[in-house]
Design a protein around this nucleic acid. Structure first.
Length: 156
DNA sequence: GCCAACGTTGGC
DNA sequence: GCCAACGTTGGC
């Protein structure tokens, strides 16, 4: 597959909000906690440093896109998988063969909240994976066209 | 390899 | 809190 250049990445604001990311050193955070193979594969196989990221808040009062970020590193092991005290601990993952990988994400700017209802109201965004019924994937590719439309909407 | 049961995600 | 949708597990 050709590497997409744009992504949407979900984060629960209770865990890591756009404000948390912007407040981190270099505004950069490791994208910990992904425990789904499809999402992991996107990070491991398809992301490149500099790819555009739509920072999305999920499981919260106002779900939606809340900021613009970029992929800031290549894939590396998610260390929380080896930490017995972490909720993301995976007893079946061996340090010699880490099962879960992550990338660093650098927040670039906070935007207004582009909520799901508004996204659904835009025909050009109808095919976005995050809007598909039953979608649960925490990382999804975004087309250049979708990126451009969202960029315009965020400027409003 | 099938598939039922179970656990999780996440909007509402 | 509800519940639809989906992924994973494990018995067979």
């Amino acid at each position: 597959m050709t590497a997409p250049r744009y992504w949407l990445m979900k984060s629960e604001p209770d865990e890591c909000s756009i404000d948390d990311a912007l407040a981190a050193p270099d505004a950069t955070v490791p994208w910990t906690g992904v425990r789904n193979y499809q999402a992991r594969n996107f990070m491991r196989d398809d992301m490149r440093v500099g790819d555009g990221v739509l920072f999305y808040h999920s499981s919260c009062a106002e779900p939606g896109i809340v900021g613009i970020a970029r992929v800031a590193s290549g894939a590396k092991p998610d260390l929380t998988q080896f930490d017995p005290h972490s909720p993301y601990f995976d007893a079946k993952s061996q340090p010699e063969a880490p099962r879960w990988q992550l990338v660093d994400v650098q927040a670039l700017r906070k935007t207004r909240v582009l909520g799901l209802a508004e996204m659904r109201s835009v025909p050009e965004l109808a095919e976005m994976q995050v809007l598909k019924r039953g979608n649960r994937l925490s990382i999804t590719p975004v087309t250049p066209q979708e990126w451009q439309v969202i960029d315009c909407l965020l400027a409003l």
